[in-house]
Design a protein around this nucleic acid. Structure first.
Length: 729
DNA sequence: CTGGGGATGGGGCCC
DNA sequence: TGGGCCCCATCCCCA
């Protein structure tokens, strides 16, 4: 009974069953549904009152039905595509693009309702998904016609109903037509189209200025020129499913935007009841489900503000930096898309001059994935686009505050330019972190929405389960087992392993795992050095470097060589210095060729591992050599230094543990051992190797003693790294 | 080889 | 929950 099959996916049960045509719960079903205007429901109401959703499933019916195939080109022929914007936490998240047949679903074939009377579906966002809720009974053979629920429409900057949209469309068409007339007389305009076009066309070949100016505030830099992170959670699948809004006819590649302030303002003021002289057939012209481009998510971009709050700024220079994520198609013919749908494209329409073709490599038909590729591989770097969020607040925060302990080092005075004030008005970019798309559950059965909702937040967004410890969730990295106090810390940490660097610098394309790192990095391009030494007034880009520098004034040299009196202000210098000593092993075994840097290493060696003395009959030569190798490795490690510095500690015992841990790890053997002095049940003694140990009186025991309190803690002991405190002892 | 500085990575904590 | 900030560690470059 449905004509909305694309050959692979079909809408099923919910809309076909006469008994339950409504996606409402049983209680609601008892109501006289005709009395309820569900088109006025909010998304929350839809969500609350809807009991079942019907998942897509493969169409198992006959495909040769000509009725079905006829439905398919309906959109394509008219240049209409389903393109839905998904928001997450109020921010743009991704698009669902109906153009990609294999990745979209039957929704792409549902036409928009151009009157409330004919509307029988309401589109709502639920989580990361778009749902069509039935708002009235849908008999068999009735066409599905959808419009947004009011809330969703508002978020998309759409009119509340299809009728209003149609009125606006017609009005916009008039405006657009007038605009075309204006364009033919460039003398009336501040910039001619050709001027703008020329400028834009030349732009890609220009080097990127480090600090582009914000069009709204010429004296303020656009800050930073970093591009917003490519959404980190973009899986390959996601990229495939969210390709770009495209053109049906590639001969029409003109980007279409509404550039004219007058057009915009007139539209703003155009009443919804404006006359409708244009005789447009709605189905042929309406761009259904085109997105409200970043109507929220990009508000924080400099140069962008919600519709009506700011005049259009035809700055082609700036537009190079801030383009929407995807090219925008136009309807064929003079009325540009932006002219017709200025509300749909509030962002883009402000940034790109009219009739500006897409830069090479960024043609609409080429897909959004290109935006995610390295710029060098396809388009000028300038075109590297911001994703849903940006790092524009970068550095702003840095400068808006005095640095701790140093007067006002951010003062623009010392040559450090004022940081992007433009960003100060911007919103902090939303996360680049991994929002797991909860799009595809394949169950055919109905899913409880509330349950689904619960499963998509918090730690469950991780792709592996977290353990619990003492009733609390243990935020442990599943790769390096490092634990964190907070989930957010773990999430950030996981980027270390995944290689995910969602914060991209637009200037040099370098990626960073954290926004703060990008912010700091941006100072490289600006040359800004916000941290000033109060003694010599030398400026530094980072507090760390300033702190290091301050040691020069204080004379503090916290890193001291243990072998010679050399002291250093930086640890790295000590490390380099230590290499000089690595060839020197002052502690030589009197019985064999082995020598050690540390006395404790030699002593350990002498405690039973010296082959020349008296190797244990229970221990093979290979095993002893292995132990000695580990002692040597330990000897040249930083751990040896650190252990030596520890007072009141059984160093030898610790050394043994260290070495033993290494062996345990690397050889995967288990040493045999006795129970500790306190007794207690330990693991059964492994047979492979006996390890020797000195007892408190200096005589050798035949086995290494493992303290009962830590029978299996044989991994190298975590010791605080060489710190100033440690060095001072 | 030493010393100074620049740049970046990683993580903790606070809000 | 995630951004912002801070700190420490580390690597690298250069004089």
């Amino acid at each position: 009974s449905l004509g909305w099959i694309d050959g692979s996916i079909a809408l099923s049960a919910m809309l076909t069953t006469e008994e339950a045509p409504y996606a409402v719960d049983n209680e609601e079903l008892k109501m006289d549904v005709e009395d309820v205007d569900m088109t006025k429901w909010t998304e929350e109401e839809f969500e609350e009152k809807c009991t079942y959703i019907v998942k897509d499933h493969t169409w198992e019916g006959p495909l040769e039905n000509t009725e079905l195939t006829r439905a398919i080109p309906k959109w394509n022929n008219s240049g209409l595509y389903l393109l839905v914007t998904i928001y997450s936490n109020g921010e743009f998240h991704h698009f669902v693009d109906g153009l990609v047949e294999e990745k979209s679903n039957w929704m792409r074939y549902v036409n928009p309702a151009h009157s409330q009377q004919e509307q029988n579906l309401a589109a709502c966002q639920n989580g990361m998904n778009i749902y069509f809720y039935t708002v009235k009974a849908i008999p068999a053979d009735q066409e599905l016609l959808v419009w947004y629920c009011p809330e969703f429409a508002r978020r998309l900057n759409y009119p509340a109903s299809g009728e209003i949209m149609m009125q606006k469309l017609k009005q916009s068409l008039i405006e657009a037509t007038q605009q075309v007339t204006e364009i033919k007389h460039p003398g009336k305009r501040e910039h001619s189209v050709s001027e703008i076009l020329k400028d834009v066309l030349q732009e890609p070949s220009r080097p990127l200025p480090t600090r582009p100016r914000c069009p709204n505030s010429p004296d303020r830099p656009l800050y930073p020129s970093a591009v917003y992170p490519l959404r980190p959670s973009l899986s390959e699948d996601f990229l495939k499913t969210t390709t770009v809004f495209g053109l049906p006819n590639r001969s029409h590649r003109q980007c279409s935007v509404t550039p004219s302030p007058s057009a915009h303002s007139s539209l703003e003021s155009s009443p919804e009841s404006s006359p409708t002289p244009a005789s447009l057939e709605p189905r042929d012209t309406l761009l259904s489900f085109s997105p409200a481009l970043y109507s929220r998510g990009l508000n924080h971009y400099p140069g962008y503000s919600p519709a009506g709050s700011m005049p259009f700024y035809p700055n082609p220079h700036y537009s190079r930096y801030l383009m929407p994520h995807y090219p925008v198609s136009s309807l064929s013919g003079p009325p540009t898309l932006g002219g017709i749908f200025p509300h749909m494209y509030p962002f883009y329409s402000r940034l790109v001059p009219p009739h500006v073709p897409f830069p090479p490599g960024m043609l609409p038909s080429e897909g959004s994935r290109q935006f995610l590729l390295p710029p060098d591989s396809l388009a000028p770097r300038d075109i590297l686009l911001p994703a849903a969020t940006s790092a524009f607040s970068a550095a702003t925060s840095l400068k808006d505050k005095p640095v701790h302990g140093h007067g006002n080092p951010y003062a623009p005075a010392g040559g450090s330019p004022p940081a992007g004030s433009a960003a100060s008005t911007g919103r902090v970019p939303t996360k680049p972190t991994s929002a797991i798309l909860s799009t595809s559950r394949s169950e055919d059965k109905a899913i409880n929405l509330s349950k689904m909702k619960q499963g998509s937040t918090g730690y469950k967004t991780l792709d592996y389960p977290l353990k619990k410890q003492n009733g609390k969730i243990k935020y442990e990295c599943n790769i390096c087992t490092k634990t964190f106090g907070q989930l957010s810390n773990l999430k950030v940490h996981l980027r270390v392993h995944s290689g995910e660097r969602p914060f991209k610098c637009q200037t040099c394309n370098k990626g960073f795992t954290q926004l703060a790192h990008l912010q700091k990095h941006y100072l490289v391009h600006t040359g800004e050095k916000p941290h000033e030494c109060q003694v010599c007034h030398k400026r530094f880009s980072s507090t760390s470097n300033l702190k290091t520098h301050l040691r020069l004034h204080s004379g503090e040299k916290p890193y001291q060589c243990k072998i010679c009196p050399a002291k250093f202000t930086q640890f790295v210098h000590l490390k380099l210095h230590k290499r000089l000593h690595t060839r020197e092993h002052p502690h030589q075994c009197p019985h064999c060729h082995r020598n050690y840097i540390h006395l404790s290493s030699l002593r350990l060696h002498l405690k039973g591992y010296c082959l020349a003395v008296s190797p244990s009959p229970s221990c093979s030569l290979d095993e002893l050599n292995r132990v000695n190798e580990e002692i040597e490795r330990f000897d040249i490690s930083d751990n040896a230094d650190r252990l030596e510095e520890m007072e009141g500690f059984d160093v030898e015992s610790m050394v043994e543990k260290q070495i033993f841990g290494l062996l345990w790890q690397e050889m995967d053997f288990k040493a045999s051992y006795h129970k500790g002095s306190t007794g207690g049940d330990l693991h059964p003694p492994p047979p492979a190797l006996s390890i020797y140990r000195l007892n408190e009186h200096g005589s050798e025991d035949s086995v290494i003693k493992v303290h009962c309190s830590s029978p299996i803690q044989l991994l190298p002991v975590k010791v605080k790294k060489e710190t100033e405190e440690a060095m001072e002892t």
